[in-house]
Amino acid sequence: MTFFEMSDVSFHYDKGSRTVLRRFSLGLDKGESVGVLGQSGCGKSTLLRLISGLEEPVTGRIVIDGTTMVDARKFVNPELRGVGMVFQDYGLFPHLTVEQNIAFGLHRLSKKNRAARLGEMLELVKLQDYRRRYPHELSGGQQQRVAFARALAPEPALLLMDEPFSNLDANLRGEIRSELRQLLRAAEMTSILVTHDKEDADAICDRIVYMQANDEISQERNSS
């Protein structure tokens, strides 16, 4: 059964400007991890912004776990969609510490549960010793792990990742990829990874979708 579905979604930024997406459709099963591959400028990041509600599609429909998030007459604001996102530049709040960043999205939990969940997440990404540091006091790899912990902490229905490895050294990448794959499996997380690097997608995702600029057809392929 399809857990996430977007159908016939079209989008352009301003009136009269180039169409970024044209009648784009994509479906994911629960717990599935899909990689979206394409060159820069083909609308990969826009795809994630549409799913998360940061942009509004011109036409089309997006459904997550049976709830319509957007269609012709409905629009659910991003804070109510239960979608987690790891940004390319992480977007860690510079005025908050590591633990404040991770606990940021846990405002709906009680104080006790919040502390417990924070501890869990810190352990998961192995940053217990860095909880009181500020983002600028961390290495790139550590920052990235905080970004993952922050996105996963509120247990989102869907995790979106926008080129999460692009700021990492090549020798760190391999290690973090396999960590991430295990992490997503353990959490049975439904996720979409956007990247221009096929190796990233191969290492993490169950399935790969190719996207081309202005293309309405998406090719799909099962990876090993």
């Binding site: 940061l54 804070e79 996102m85 940004f87 530049d89 709040f93 005025h95 999205g105 996105a151």
Partner: peptide, 25 residues
């Protein structure tokens, strides 16, 4: 806009995002 977007995806509306994230920045 990055921090604001991150905050909204973590479940805060425009007003709480403003006081928790935007204003300090």
């Amino acid at each position: 806009n990055r921090y604001t977007e991150a905050s909204r995806l973590l479940g805060f509306g425009m007003t709480r995002t403003f006081f928790k994230v935007d204003l300090p920045l």
